[in-house]
Design a protein around this nucleic acid. Structure first.
Length: 396
RNA sequence: GCUGGAGUCGUCUAGUGGCAAUGACAAGAGACUGUAAAUCUCUCGCGCUUCGAGCUUCGUAGGUUCGAGUCCUACCUCCAGCA
């Protein structure tokens, strides 16, 4: 079982450490979105320097390119990407929501490759197998993320997610056992892999033992009864942690998380899938018991010129920054803010230089990572409420 | 000087009798939440009571026509060739 130590609690909020085979994650933590085994515009060195503790890649994208066999050959996601830290993979379930022309059946989902339009099918089993081959530390169950906000549709998607979860758990167990016993018979003792234990701050040296963990994904949309039902179902399964999926806005998220996280077992980590573009997501998420976050928003917005400051987001491309020679954010100690000013960033964006996106991504990613790090400190120091109030009042 | 060609929104450009007038770029602004996103959307002659009508525009000045960026005349400028 994935080792998760809780150091401090404050109602639903908690401060902890997730011990993965590739190192520890001090939680709450923001996990960088590295969909195609890279955080867009950033090197892994830059990610380390800006303070990121973990990354999350996407099974769908990696299956299409470069393919799971290559990831396996490379020694896994961490080794392949030179990240060498904790890694997550998303299951591909989100693509049900985001891609056009998906055909969903009880067995699984047929997608079209975004690369060449070729047909491609993903099932709970194939997602588990792919994630196993990709070799991230933490895997997400293959879930059905409903496109509709309609109650009946949401309920159906949730129930399918639950049935698929059973298949994911079964397939994950089979893969764990096959690896641990080396004979692939699928009946070996799972606890062989669960015996290893890391202390805080301790990372394994040398080759990492194959040891991978599964999170169930809670669905149910905005309906609290469905969320509760989904949380109960996921909680009853033998999984290492939980993803909370299908969340798109901070509005109503507090009630939803209160419902879900009151039901989920306290001693397992919870990942709020896809949330963190807005700082309020991180505050509400942490306050109501989420341990990790991932979001493409910070880097996507960075590439589009929308940059975080403590006084809210600004569009650095706006004409008013042409002659602004002050740093993007005085209080920020990222590479971008320490060395460059707004007029220069403005110029880089207007001339469409690659560096514009690099520096902007460093800043935005650093901003969210640091914001969550400070939430952790504030929880430890019992100053969370003040920090939250102060931050949000200034930002919004 | 002669002959031929060309002058359209900041730039390049479409347009050969019914157009405030095409497309691209530039410019101005907005969006973006488990990434088909270094993407997408809007504005871009002027002012308004801004849905809608009005006014002024296609080198300049006249003319033909119900109607001209489009046809005619003159002039100006640029390009090419010849003197």
């Amino acid at each position: 079982m994935l080792k998760f130590d809780i150091l401090k609690r404050n109602e639903l909020a908690r401060v902890g450490v997730i011990h993965t085979p590739h190192g520890d994650i001090k939680t709450p933590a923001f996990v960088g979105a590295a969909t195609r085994a890279t955080v867009k515009a950033l090197t892994m060195k830059e990610m380390r320097e800006l303070g990121s503790q973990a990354i999350l890649a996407n099974t769908y994208h990696l299956v299409l390119r470069p393919g799971v066999d290559l990831l396996k050959e490379a020694g896994g996601l961490a080794e392949f990407s030179s990240w060498h830290g904790p890694t997550f993979t998303d299951s591909g379930g989100f693509q049900i929501f985001s891609l056009p022309d998906v055909k969903i059946s009880e067995n699984g989902v047929k997608f079209k490759s975004y690369l060449d339009g070729s047909k491609f099918e993903m099932t709970p089993e194939s997602s588990m197998q792919a994630q196993w081959a990709i070799g991230a530390d933490i895997h997400m169950a293959f879930d059905h993320l409903a496109k509709s906000e309609n109650y009946e549709d949401m309920k159906r998607a949730m129930e399918r997610t639950h049935r698929w979860l059973d298949r994911c758990v079964e397939e994950h167990r089979r893969l764990v056992c096959a690896t641990s016993t080396g004979d692939g018979d699928g009946r070996g003792p799972q606890n062989v892999l669960r015996s290893k234990n890391f202390g805080e701050g301790e990372s394994p040296a040398g080759p990492v033992e194959k040891m991978q963990f599964l999170y169930a994904v809670v669905q149910g949309g905005t309906f609290l009864d469905l969320r509760a039902e989904s949380a109960r179902y996921c909680a009853s399964k033998e999984v290492d942690g939980f993803g909370i999926g299908g969340v798109f806005t901070a509005e109503g998220m507090d009630e939803m998380l209160k419902t879900v996280n009151s039901i989920l077992p306290e001693d397992k980590p919870r990942h709020l899938l896809g949330m963190g573009q807005e700082p309020i997501d991180l505050f509400v998420g942490a306050e109501y018991g989420c341990d990790t976050f991932d979001c493409v928003g910070p880097t996507r917005m960075a590439r589009n010129g929308s940059l975080y400051t403590l006084d809210g987001r600004i569009n650095i491309k706006n004409a008013k920054y042409t002659h602004d020679f002050t740093p993007l954010m005085e209080e920020c100690d990222c590479e971008c803010c320490k060395n460059y000013n707004k007029a220069y960033l403005h110029h880089l964006f207007k001339t469409d230089e690659i560096t514009a996106k690099v520096l902007a991504s460093i800043h935005n990613e650093h901003f969210v990572v640091t914001t969550v790090d400070r939430i952790r400190e504030a929880l430890l120091n019992d100053t969370f409420d003040e920090y939250k109030k102060e931050f949000l009042a200034r930002y919004y």
